[in-house]
C-alpha cells in the first residue's frame, strides 16, 4: 500500500512540475522583455494554457491530500517548520492564478490594465517558482527541527540560506525551459518560435549553471546533496544522463521537432527527480531529530487502503478525461479565431 501511495505522490509531483511548471514558466517568459512580440506571445500563452490551467494545478492539491491523509506526521511537520515559505508560495499561487484568468476575461482590454495583469502574473510566477525550490531544498537538508526553542531555528533556519535559494533559481530555470519547449509546439508564428528557441537555450544554460551552483553550495550543508550524490553511483548516473540529454535536445530544438523536444525535456525532469529520489528514499523529509520515512510515518492500513482506492478510481476518471481534453485542443487549426 505504501509503495503505491508513494508512487502516486511522486507521479503527482512530477506531473505538477511538468504541467504546472510550464504554466509557471510561461509567466516567467512574459516577465522578460518581448518588444513587439508581447501581444502575440500573450495570445499564444492564453490559448496554450487556458484550457489546461485548472487541471494543471490540481496536481498540487493531490500532493497535499495524499500527504495529509496518508502521511499526516510528515505533512504537519512540514506545515509547521516551513510555515513561512509555504505562506509565500500560497501568496504567489493566488496572485498568478487570478491574474492569468482576470487578464483573459476582463471585458475591457485596456493597455494599462492588461499590462498590470501581465506584470503581476509574471512576477508571481517567478516568485512561486523560487519558493517551490526553496521548499524542496528544505525537505532534506536536515535543519527542520520540531523541538527548537527559538523562532529563528524553528521557523527560519530550516529554509534560510544560499543553498535553498540556489535550488529556487534552478527550479525557476527548469520551469522557464519547460515553458519554451511546450510553447514552441503551440504556435506557427516563426518570430515567436525563434523567441521560444532562444529563451529555451538561455534557460537550459541557466539550469546547467545553477545546477552546478546547487551542487557546490550544498557542500556546506549539514546533509549535503553533493556528497550524497558522489557516494551514490546510480543517482550520479541519472544526473549525468540528464545533463547529456541537453545535447540531444539541442538538435531537436534547432529542427523544431516538437514532440521529441517535449519527450526529452520531460525525460530530463524525470531523471533529475529520480536522482533526488534515489538519494533520499524512503524519506519524505530529514529533520534534526532524524529522517521521516514514508514507511514509518504512514497512516493506519485502513486509511491507506481507502486512499489507494480513491486514487485508483480517480485515475480511471482523470486520465481518460485529460486525454480527451488534450485531444480536443490538440487539433489546432491555424489562424482560427477562438470565440469566448
Amino acid at each position: 500500500m505504501i509503495d503505491i501511495l508513494v508512487f502516486f505522490l511522486a507521479a503527482s509531483l512530477l506531473l505538477y512540475i511538468l504541467m504546472g511548471g510550464s504554466d509557471f514558466g510561461a509567466g516567467i517568459l512574459e516577465l522578460l522583455p518581448a518588444g513587439e512580440l508581447r501581444e502575440r506571445q500573450k495570445k499564444v500563452i492564453n490559448h496554450a494554457m487556458g484550457p489546461v490551467w485548472e487541471a494543471n494545478h490540481i496536481w498540487l492539491i493531490l500532493v497535499v491530500v495524499i500527504l495529509f491523509m496518508g502521511f499526516p506526521k510528515i505533512f504537519t511537520t512540514l506545515m509547521v517548520s516551513l510555515h513561512l515559505p509555504m505562506l509565500a508560495l500560497l501568496l504567489g499561487v493566488v496572485v498568478r492564478g487570478t491574474m492569468f484568468t482576470f487578464r483573459h476575461y476582463d471585458s475591457i482590454q485596456g493597455p494599462r490594465s492588461q499590462g498590470a495583469y501581465t506584470w503581476l502574473f509574471g512576477a508571481s510566477s517567478l516568485w512561486s517558482a523560487l519558493w517551490l525550490g526553496i521548499i524542496a531544498a528544505s525537505l532534506n537538508r536536515g535543519l527542520i527541527d520540531n523541538e527548537a526553542g527559538d523562532f529563528w531555528s524553528a521557523y527560519v533556519a530550516p529554509w534560510w540560506g544560499a543553498f535553498p535559494l540556489s535550488v529556487g533559481g534552478f527550479v525557476a530555470g527548469i520551469f522557464g525551459f519547460l515553458a519554451c519547449i511546450y510553447l514552441l509546439g503551440e504556435t506557427e508564428d516563426e518570430a515567436l518560435r525563434r523567441r521560444f528557441r532562444r529563451w529555451g537555450a538561455v534557460f537550459n544554460a541557466w539550469v546547467v549553471v545553477s545546477g552546478g551552483g546547487v551542487f557546490v553550495l550544498s557542500l556546506a550543508e549539514p546533509v549535503s546533496l553533493a556528497r550524497q550524490f558522489l557516494g551514490h553511483p546510480l543517482a550520479m548516473t541519472t544526473l549525468l544522463l540528464a545533463t547529456l540529454l541537453c545535447g540531444v535536445l539541442w538538435r531537436f530544438l534547432v529542427k523544431t521537432r516538437v514532440v521529441w523536444s517535449r519527450v526529452i525535456a520531460a525525460g530530463q525532469v524525470v531523471l533529475i527527480l529520480l536522482g533526488w529520489w534515489l538519494l533520499y528514499a524512503p524519506n519524505g523529509a530529514i529533520t534534526v531529530q532524524g529522517p521521516l520515512s514514508f514507511y514509518e510515518q504512514a497512516a493506519p492500513e485502513a486509511t491507506l487502503r481507502q486512499l489507494v482506492i480513491a486514487l485508483l478510481v480517480g485515475s480511471a476518471f482523470i486520465f481518460p478525461s485529460l486525454v480527451f481534453l488534450l485531444r480536443v485542443f490538440k487539433a489546432r487549426r491555424p489562424g482560427e479565431e477562438e470565440e469566448h
Partner: peptide
C-alpha cells in the same frame, strides 16, 4: 487526516 481524509481524496477526483 487519516480519519477524515477520505472525502477530501474523493473531492480531489
Amino acid at each position: 487526516g487519516p480519519i477524515v481524509g477520505m472525502p477530501f481524496s474523493w473531492e480531489g477526483t
